[in-house]
């Protein structure tokens, strides 16, 4: 089983296609987001950004959970992209408890603390992440494969 989970505000972008895709040998991209499947322009754009020999599926979070459960034992590598921390929590609650989570980029907004150069978290998001950590998810912050990952426990000061 090799499903990778990543939170990235821009979903599919250069870092994903040019670095993570070859690094993890991803065959199948899954976007779990409630808005994307209904927006045909965004769907076209994602489809054209991902090379044609790779599969691409976009599902609402409710449908993504059973889909991912069904693919749990598939042999091909899969990358699940989530837009925000709330989406990640929603996916977890919808019946797909993932074991690990990578945080790539979370953009700045007012009231957010800077965690790393690419990750900004507000208080609410930090609480959600803490609860995911408590439920046994191992979470790290890593923008590119050649960077050293930062363990979220250390950043948030959780034991």
């Amino acid at each position: 089983m090799s499903i990778f989970y990543r939170i990235d505000n821009r979903l599919v972008h250069g870092q994903i296609i040019s670095t993570w895709m070859p690094h993890l040998r991803i065959r199948h991209f899954v976007i779990a987001n409630d808005a994307v499947p209904e927006n045909s322009l965004r769907m076209t754009m994602f489809r054209m950004a991902i090379p044609t020999e790779h599969d691409f599926t976009a599902l609402s979070i409710k449908n993504a959970a059973p889909f991912l459960n069904a693919h749990r034992n598939s042999t091909e590598s899969m990358l699940v992209l989530l837009e925000s921390i709330s989406d990640a929590e929603a996916l977890f609650d919808a019946g797909h408890p993932f074991p690990s989570l990578n945080i790539g980029n979370i953009h700045h907004a007012s009231g957010k603390d800077q965690i790393t150069n690419a990750v900004f978290l507000n208080h609410n998001e930090q609480t959600k992440l803490r609860s995911l950590l408590d439920r046994g998810v191992s979470i790290n912050i890593q923008t590119l494969p050649n960077e050293t990952p930062t363990d979220l426990r250390r950043v948030l000061g959780v034991q």
């Binding site: 972008h13 040019s18 670095t19 923008t143």
Partner: peptide
């Protein structure tokens, strides 16, 4: 050395 998105 490639500038991918937010990564320096």
């Amino acid at each position: 050395c490639v500038l991918f998105g937010s990564n320096v």
